[in-house]
């Protein structure tokens, strides 16, 4: 006998709106830590924060890609499929949202959809589950959304992530947007953010 499927948002309209506003604030104000409190209990190893973002934004028009850690647990794809209706794709370049449970195993930048010069919006949003938004390598950036340079230090991060960010900015307006999802909080580095010189 199979176990019952864990529930999704209790209040679809208002929960999705809350998650979206937190994400919107995070992207509009890069590096700022935005609290996200929702009592979602998705199947492990999917974290409540990754799950909230998927439930809020993924659907039949916005496919998901799961990293190996998430993909190796069938209950994750099953839960996401049931609650969002989003296809789970095997090629990250076809995904609107890439859910990355183990940031150290992040695929190279060009594995994702980077958009085109004419449609830079046709790109993947990469959501990284991190343990904390503090204590890691300091990513010091400036650009839209920041009155002065801001610093975000998520951990863990992939090796050479600073190079990845620099490459990503070089592609502008193409590129991906990074969202960092720690327990109870989100932060973001959209493609518009530029690493400052001393970083």
């Amino acid at each position: 006998m199979s176990t019952a499927l864990a529930s999704g948002f209790r209040d679809a309209a208002h929960d999705a709106q809350k998650v979206f506003r937190v994400l919107m604030d995070a992207l509009a104000r890069p590096t700022t830590v935005q609290p996200l409190a929702l009592d979602l209990i998705p199947p492990a190893p999917l974290t409540p924060e990754l799950a909230s973002i998927a439930l809020a934004l993924a659907d039949q028009d916005a496919p998901l890609w799961l990293d190996e850690t998430l993909g190796s647990e069938p209950a994750v794809a099953q839960w996401l499929g049931f609650h969002t209706g989003a296809p789970v794709v095997s090629d990250p370049a076809e995904a609107a949202f890439a859910l990355v449970r183990d940031p150290r195993a992040l695929p190279p930048l060009d594995a994702f959809a980077l958009g085109t010069e004419e449609f830079p919006d046709r790109s993947t949003t990469v959501v990284l589950a991190v343990e904390s938004l503090e204590g890691g390598t300091a990513l010091r950036v400036e650009g839209p959304g920041l009155p002065r340079p801001g610093t975000l230090s998520p951990t863990p991060l992939p090796d050479e992530f600073i190079d990845t960010l620099r490459d990503n900015r070089t592609l502008f307006p193409r590129g991906v947007d990074f969202i960092f999802a720690a327990p109870g909080a989100l932060a973001a580095l959209p493609r518009s953010s530029r690493l400052t010189e001393e970083a």
């Binding site: 679809a12 309209a13 999705a16 709106q17 979206f20 994400l23 919107m24 992207l27 509009a28 809020a56 934004l57 993924a58 659907d59 028009d61 916005a62 609107a96 449609f119 830079p120 919006d121 790109s123 949003t125 839209p144 959304g145 307006p173 947007d177 959209p190 493609r191 518009s192």
Partner: peptide, 23 residues
């Protein structure tokens, strides 16, 4: 909710690419 998700995805892309018109 489906329409809101679609609009929200467009808004997030718009914020990430300031001044670019997202269809």
């Amino acid at each position: 909710e489906g329409t809101k998700r679609m609009i929200r995805r467009a808004i997030l892309k718009g914020i990430a690419i300031p001044g670019y018109q997202v269809p």
